[in-house]
Design a protein around this nucleic acid. Structure first.
Lengths: 242, 242
DNA sequence: GCGCTTAGTTGAACGCGTTCAAAAACGCGA
DNA sequence: TCGCGTTTTTGAACGCGTTCAACTAAGCGC
């Protein structure tokens, strides 16, 4: 199945050019016609390269999705970082992040379903559970670290340490909802964000309460365990490849 | 994409026989060689029917998975219902249910990944979010209702009403973890079950505390909203089909 | 028996993702 | 300029899921 191969070795400038040409063409067509409707042959044709050439740069059709991941993440970073400078409370910052995230994803709504489908597949390089080392996810989580940082909220250290990861998981949940949200302009998703952010804010306050310490500790131990398992799963997968 | 078609009209006894023959053969081969490795041609050949005949009874390869769903659910019911009669506390019952669930799924571990991959796809008949009317899921949720019923735990009505659904979602999460769990004999999953059930039990107690009422109400309103959205998504999908 | 309708069955063909051996283009030292 | 290794490109071919027009078998009224 589709686990990551050896890194495609470096390239000549011309090769680079061809690669981005193929990628741009593909993403364009995905957006227009959807993922399944867009065939590799059609991509190659429109990009004026041979079918085999497309596969020379992208091991499979799924790898084009991964490239989409990369691109979108950078767009989001560029849009989010300045936006949260204005907000001071955790709640306000989180709200901004989530709204902007969905905003930038909206053009790809139809196409995003596939993304989750492949991401749910164990062994896929997109799988959000395995592959602790994946740089995109690392960065994605780091974003939520910055969201919490620069906030005057008093959060216990143990919770503070895991909070970025927890918020990242939360944000994945919202995206999952958004994928299935058929309401006009995805109003429901925005409403869900409003409600859940409010709730999360209250939950964090509650969990920060001293008398919640034992329960919180237990819950955090659990989270840690989940993360460990994810790392192991990733290593196992790598071992299989060789 | 793969939404449910008109119910395949009823059949003659002979047709029924052929259908189950194909299904048995398929599940057998899935278990042996995995889903992707098993081709429709191979299934047809081993069952001594033509390729087209297999498609006459199962609109697509995915529909064989749905049949697997059905079968497994019944096996689980048969194993679980007697088992929980002995337990009285909610915690003990939940523990039993989860352990038996995983137990019966274990032989299909490798193959189960595909199941989740397709289930995550919006528009798939297996999608756990859409299709409120799906009878398997309804029954599956009902099981958790029986888990809560016959327990002396004092749970507020509002929470009590949503609890089966919430536990069902929890159990989906555990299965997702299990799919990715590479540890020997899936020890990690069992450990996770132990810990999460313990935690859940405490959380339910906490949420049942009178002074938690406002927060609980808010959270439950959110859950309700999620369920409504799921129903809408399902209807939207159906409308598309016609 | 005979025609008619419906259920069941067949296998060839199509479309698409993917692979691969071989050709072409390129870079570069001699 | 020529040779040679490397990178890039090509297009035919393979395997598999899926479709479909056509064939057969089974029931049923007459």
């Amino acid at each position: 199945m589709g686990a990551m191969r050896k890194k495609k070795s470096i390239k000549t400038p011309k090769g680079d050019q061809t690669k981005t040409l193929i990628l741009e063409t593909a993403l364009e067509m995905f957006q227009e016609r959807g993922y399944e409707q867009t065939t590799m042959r059609a991509i190659a044709e429109k990009a004026n390269v041979s079918l085999g050439n497309a596969y020379y740069y992208f091991h499979s059709k799924e790898f084009l999705i991964q490239a989409f991941y990369h691109r979108t993440h950078e767009q989001q970073l560029a849009a989010i970082l300045p936006a949260i400078q204005n907000d001071s409370s955790l709640k306000a910052r989180l709200l901004t992040v989530m709204r902007v995230k969905i905003e930038t994803l909206n053009p790809y709504h139809e196409f995003a379903g596939v993304l989750f489908k492949t991401a749910a597949n164990p062994g896929s390089p997109l799988n959000p559970f395995a592959e602790e080392s994946d740089p995109i996810r690392q960065e994605s989580i780091k974003l939520f670290d910055q969201v919490v940082e620069g906030t005057q909220a008093r959060i216990p250290k143990d919770l503070r340490a895991e909070l970025p990861y927890l918020l990242w998981v939360y944000h994945m949940g919202i995206i999952l909802f958004w994928i299935h949200d058929p309401s006009p302009k995805h109003r429901r998703t925005y409403r869900l964000i409003d409600h859940t952010v409010d709730l999360l804010d209250k939950l964090i306050s509650l969990a920060s309460n001293p008398f919640m310490r034992p329960l919180r500790k237990q819950a955090l131990r659990l989270v840690e365990e989940l993360r460990d398992a994810a790392t192991d799963a990733r290593n196992e997968n790598n071992a299989d490849q060789n």
